[in-house]
């Protein structure tokens, strides 16, 4: 298959080379807010996301409701 003929879905802007290092910095806990902005710089997403509290992050979300029971019932068929 010729190279120029390969599928190219979703081409979009590539990342600037500097970002990886900053990510690393962020991973070390340095300048979190500023780096978040940099990470998102190319994606035009809102600057800062509303993050859940640690407690909320870990909470249970599973609900044993009619929808879920229905799924189990279909699997028993």
């Amino acid at each position: 298959m010729r190279r120029d003929d390969t599928p190219k879905p979703n081409t979009s802007k590539t990342e600037k080379p500097g970002i990886e290092r900053r990510n690393l910095l962020k991973g070390l806990g340095i300048g979190a807010a500023g780096v978040a902005a940099a990470t998102l710089a190319n994606t035009t997403a809102p600057a800062e996301a509303a993050t859940e509290s640690r407690q909320d992050q870990l909470k249970s979300r599973y609900q044993d409701n009619a929808h879920v029971e229905r799924f189990y019932a279909l699997n028993r068929l």
Partner: peptide, 20 residues
């Protein structure tokens, strides 16, 4: 990986973070 995957790897957005 030799064809589409290759293009994908070089051409994809650098993060999984997408526009809202």
């Amino acid at each position: 990986l030799a064809a589409g995957g290759m293009a994908a790897l070089s051409a994809l957005p650098a993060t999984m973070i997408r526009k809202a």
